[in-house]
Amino acid sequence: MTHESDPASRFPDACRVWLVLVSVCLASLLLVGPAHAQDGRIEYRSLVSYVIDGNVLLESDVSVRLSGLSRAALQSGVALEFDVEIDVIRQRNFWPDKTLRRYQIPVRLSYQDLTRSYRLERLNSGQRASFSDLDSALDAVAQLRDVVLISEDQLSGRGRYYGVMRVQLDLDALPGPLRTQAYFSRAWQLDNGEQTWPLR
């Protein structure tokens, strides 16, 4: 680390600001389009529902991979927050589908320099876990076991029932300076998408 910044990059930085201001609209337009292959991505490996004691349970196996920049930010002490969202939906003909249940699980991932471990914390329950490596921690972000989604009785109506899971990185939870950059940078955009699976 140095005290002096690179002289060559000092003035162009000011000029670049103007370019950014002018191209904000174009950049935002580009971001609206479909995301392509990125460093960061989310892969829904397995989403399985089963019935135990009259309740429909979920077991999920979701792989989250961060981009290099996100990893660096995490290693530098920036906590990342993920939003895990699960919907139980009833499909209807000639009518918009009806959401029967919605679960939102905010999960914070942080790096602990003291113990060289990664801490995972579910913010709505306070549940914590430590992981010695990042990939294990990321795999646990949306890994759910025996989570009760809904009572089986509520799926007795006609029609098809299915679940939808969405996992996304919450950019609003980033620190201010990073947030501004994250809105316009693909390095912070996770190809999250969503995954559906049948419930009945």
Partner: peptide
């Protein structure tokens, strides 16, 4: 340590944000 690391990591974005706001 983490706050310092965080600041170090965000030095350039921080400058950029300051300059963007100032430019605006």
């Amino acid at each position: 340590f983490q706050r310092y690391q965080q600041l170090t990591f965000m030095r350039e974005p921080l400058k950029f944000s300051f300059v963007v706001t100032l430019s605006l």
